[in-house]
Simulated assay, not measured.
Amino acid sequence: MNKKIIGGVSAFAIAVVGTGVYLAVPASAGASGHPGVKAADGAKGHPMRGVRGFRGIRGVHGQATVRTKKGFAQVDWQRGRLTATSGGTLSVRSADGVTWQWKTDDKTRVRKDKAKSTVSQLATGDFVFVAGLDAGGARTAKRVVVPNKVPAQETASPTPSHS
């Protein structure tokens, strides 16, 4: 295919995804009052580079395929209650009842009480945001954040849905 066509299709896809993220971010997100994605961290081209931006999204869990310098990578994210920690594995249950297992390693970055922390300092019952890579169904946590404020939806009982 022509490089101009591929470039145009890529730009369109980025615009569509960007618009979706913009519409999904609450107006109150971000300390500066801007409803955008926070500044990225990490090495250029790394699949977890923009993980801070996921925290502003209202969803409870999800997946995205991202392009890196080394090819494509599947990035997963989840927010919910930490239900168990055992042998380098975290179990997180989202508000909709979905429970995912996350492997941790020495590269897993943890933030708790606005400071760097460790996986061993996470406690069952903590409300967490986890993001990491998906390699064939095995999720590896790269970032775990315990926010200072627990969203109101997490403290209230879920309302029954009508179908």
Results as ranks from 00 to 15, higher is better:
residue 58 R to S: 07
residue 81 R to M: 08
residue 75 V to C: 05
residue 49 R to S: 07
residue 79 R to I: 00
residue 65 T to Q: 12
residue 74 Q to F: 08
residue 80 G to D: 08
residue 75 V to G: 02
residue 58 R to G: 05
residue 75 V to I: 15
residue 76 D to V: 07
residue 69 K to N: 13
residue 73 A to S: 15
residue 55 R to D: 02
residue 59 G to W: 07
residue 66 V to E: 10
residue 75 V to P: 03
residue 73 A to G: 01
residue 57 I to M: 11
residue 71 G to K: 00
residue 71 G to Q: 07
residue 50 G to Y: 10
residue 53 G to W: 00
residue 58 R to D: 05
residue 77 W to I: 02
residue 68 T to H: 10
residue 64 A to W: 01
residue 79 R to D: 03
residue 68 T to A: 08
residue 54 F to T: 09
residue 63 Q to E: 13
residue 59 G to H: 09
residue 52 R to N: 15
residue 82 L to T: 05
residue 63 Q to D: 14
residue 49 R to Q: 15
residue 74 Q to T: 13
residue 79 R to Q: 14
residue 81 R to I: 07
residue 52 R to D: 04
residue 57 I to T: 14
residue 62 G to P: 00
residue 64 A to D: 04
residue 57 I to H: 13
residue 63 Q to R: 14
residue 72 F to K: 14
residue 71 G to R: 01
residue 65 T to W: 06
residue 71 G to P: 04
residue 81 R to H: 13
residue 69 K to R: 10
residue 49 R to L: 07
residue 71 G to E: 09
residue 77 W to G: 00
residue 82 L to I: 04
residue 62 G to I: 00
residue 51 V to D: 01
residue 67 R to P: 08
residue 76 D to W: 05
residue 63 Q to P: 05
residue 73 A to Q: 14
residue 54 F to N: 09
residue 60 V to Y: 12
residue 52 R to A: 10
residue 79 R to A: 02
residue 64 A to F: 01
residue 49 R to E: 11
residue 80 G to N: 09
residue 68 T to I: 06
residue 63 Q to G: 11
residue 66 V to Q: 03
residue 56 G to V: 00
residue 76 D to Q: 10
residue 73 A to P: 09
residue 66 V to G: 06
residue 59 G to L: 03
residue 57 I to C: 03
residue 69 K to F: 10
residue 56 G to R: 12
residue 51 V to Y: 02
residue 49 R to Y: 01
